[in-house]
Design a protein around this nucleic acid. Structure first.
Lengths: 214, 214
DNA sequence: ACAATGACTGGATACAATCCCAGGCTGTAT
DNA sequence: ATACAGCCTGGGATTGTATCCAGTCATTGT
């Protein structure tokens, strides 16, 4: 079961990703410890084991810098690609997004047109993200993952409610920012509230309405 | 300058690239030696020095697996699809939009996904239409037609310049409205200026950039 | 003939890095 | 109360790795 990462584990994971993209190779335990302020490399070791257990990284025993980021998201089964990307309309409270009854129709676009790969298209309701060009009725291409970084557009589920917002985390505190001055940010304390990240916004499609934009 | 690599050095370099793309981290001297049949890691060390001298890799002293490939990580480019909608980048003055030299690549989406049918995708530059959710770099799906109505988003050519604007006509007078308070409307007197309507905006696609929206 | 370079073998050393053990502290679940 | 997981300090054994030194052999340019 993919229990979500703890805040600290997420920090470690983020540092690994950052190191690998910036330097081209993964960090050592000592480097992780130094970067996050641990006085012992063992703290990093234990975090790595946890991340490995949860499947977001792979440790290669006995190998220096032996950390791998397995391709694809942790346990997201690849969406049925045959007929294209499923288009999800409104999501009922408490049920998984990709439940069959939510699937409206399919968009004949290959999943890997977007990068990272899109797993489904979510029809966006409301104008809370209009300043980043996501309008009412648009289709948001979503990559299923729990690994999201600050500033990214995410699909989140908060108390059975699915929303699209910009993600920002500070330790145990998460802020979901709208991109529209008419909407207030949503503040979440992870210690007291449950927040589930459903995926990462990777694209937008608009225009199946029928008579041109306007 | 950059003397070309010897055959053996090329082999070593290829192995480094292969290792990094397959494993996610660079090889050690010993691993290179093992892979290429050297009986001493020093042979690998000397090759690495040569590759560093010639600038194709960068060695980080004292660091295990401290090998970097300068000039960005090798990214797999998306396979060129020769079917689907042509994507048009910048359009040279005075030439038809669908001239072959403007076609960047193709988007594997059927033309009739949009309605009315899209004939090509135009990459939009600038933020003049940001208030209707068309941002810089977005792909505008365009239906080729001259029959446009007031209020529609159109692709127009004015004095060899191709722009995307909202269309408004009053007798012989046309106004092309931006959807961004920072941009002034363009006023055109059809009796004195030539305006060509290239098509009607029927959709928007965003998100072929590579790492999520944000 | 000579030096310079590329391509190695073989051996050695010191540090880099993984990984195990023994704790402590704070929560949350049972 | 007790147990357990997450998160951390501190130390230490063992192995992984970078890096140096001393040679050999062939090729190439001078």
């Amino acid at each position: 079961m993919a229990r979500p990462l703890t805040a600290r584990q997420q920090t470690v994971y983020d540092f690994i990703v950052k190191t690998m993209t910036e330097l081209g190779y993964p960090p050592t335990r000592a480097e992780i410890a130094r970067a996050l302020g641990f006085r012992s490399p063992n703290a990093a070791e234990e975090h790595l084991r946890a991340l490995d257990r949860k499947g977001v990284i792979r440790m290669i025993p006995g190998t220096s810098r032996g950390i791998r980021l397995p391709g694809g998201s942790p346990e997201g089964e690849p969406a049925a690609v045959d007929s294209g990307l499923p288009i999800v309309g409104s999501v009922a409270a408490g049920s998984p997004i990709l439940a069959a009854e939510h699937i409206d129709r399919y968009c004949p676009l290959p999943a890997d047109y977007f990068s990272p790969r899109a797993d489904y298209l979510l029809r966006v309701r409301g104008l809370s993200m209009k300043d980043v060009g996501i309008l009412d009725g648009d289709l948001l291409a979503v990559h299923r993952t729990q690994q999201v970084r600050d500033g990214q557009i995410v699909v989140a589920r908060l108390e059975d409610d699915v929303t699209v917002k910009r993600f920002q985390r500070d330790g145990n505190h998460v802020t979901l920012l709208a991109e529209n001055p008419d909407f207030a940010p949503i503040e979440i304390d992870l210690a007291h509230q449950h927040l589930e990240i459903e995926g990462l916004g990777v694209g937008v499609i608009r225009g199946d309405n029928g008579s041109g934009l306007g």
